[in-house]
């Protein structure tokens, strides 16, 4: 009996130690994260009403979706969102489905990493970062969104954004596959894009690298780099190399038109 009790204690201790050692905090319901830490989703989560499934309200947060799915039928709130300009945030390893956006950072932030995520079925953009600097979006699948697959833009001051978008598959979006406004030193590398409006759209970029991407069957231009009269930005110092653009409805690679429509896609008038 004593032996059984000791074994039970050992088992319980081991279970506790597993969580404590890895320092991960389990998430099993829609949650607003208010403390820094390493969180792990422990089941599929679903929401059919207002609000996000995960809202991030602090710095230094890592969310491991642990292969599970977050699904929202609510078209007015994003599935995952940041509640402010927080920094050092990582989202990885799972599925994000539905919502107004899949993942939304509406108001700044720094050092944001999104990796190994399937983002699908948003009513607007799949992933949208507004005013986020030092971001990385990599090794993810972004598909079937009404607007852009990945949309990155500077904040209200039209400052610049820095980051990297690499090795993603982006497909079947109503807007651009990847759209970046006011990128400075952004890398867009090794992405595969198919069935979007514009494939890769950069408005007023400076010092950006657009390399080794494949764009197939864009309905508009495959890759375009434009100035933006509204935002007062001009492009320059960018490098486009090793891209393959095929079967676009319009131009393969277009450099040096003028955007007049701000953040929208396709509203340009060539000078």
């Amino acid at each position: 009996m004593k032996k059984l009790f000791a074994l039970a204690l050992l088992g319980a201790a081991a279970g506790t130690r597993l969580v404590a050692d890895e320092g991960r905090i389990p998430i099993s319901t829609p949650t607003t994260i208010t403390k820094s830490g390493h969180y792990i989703v422990t089941r599929d989560l679903f929401i059919n009403g207002p609000g996000s499934i995960l809202a991030i309200g602090n710095n230094h947060v890592t969310i491991d979706l642990n292969g599970f799915s977050l699904q929202s039928l609510n078209g007015t709130d994003p599935v995952i969102r940041s509640l402010g300009g927080f920094g050092s945030l990582t989202i990885r390893n799972g599925t994000v489905e539905g919502g107004s956006a899949g993942i939304l950072f509406p108001a700044g932030g720094t050092r944001v990493v999104i990796e190994g995520v399937l983002v699908t079925g948003a009513d607007q953009d799949g992933i949208r970062l507004n005013g986020v600097n030092d971001f990385a979006i990599r090794r993810s699948i972004i598909s079937i969104h009404h607007l852009d697959g990945i949309h990155v833009e500077a904040g209200n001051g039209y400052s610049e954004v820095v980051g990297t978008i690499e090795n993603n598959l982006v497909e079947d979006c109503g807007g651009s596959g990847i759209e970046i406004l006011d990128g400075s030193g952004v890398g867009v590398v090794g992405n595969r894009i198919r069935g979007t409006d514009q494939g890769i759209a950069l408005v007023a970029p400076a010092g950006c690298l657009i390399s080794d991407n494949t764009v197939v069957a864009a309905r508009g231009d495959g890759i375009f780099i434009f100035d933006d009269l509204t935002r007062g930005g001009a492009h320059g110092g960018n490098r486009l190399s090793g891209n393959a653009v095929s079967g676009s409805g319009s131009v393969g690679i277009a450099i040096g038109g003028i955007e007049t429509g701000g953040s929208s896609t396709g509203n340009f008038a060539a000078a």
Binding site: G249, V251, I255, A270
Partner: peptide, 27 residues
């Protein structure tokens, strides 16, 4: 003033490589 090199543009519905009226000193 951008650098555009080693790209492949095939079977697009408009020009393959288009340097627009606002492009300047690209290589």
């Amino acid at each position: 003033m951008n650098q555009i090199e080693d790209n492949v543009m095939t079977l697009n519905g408009d020009v393959g490589l288009w340097l627009g009226g606002n492009s300047f000193k690209n290589v």
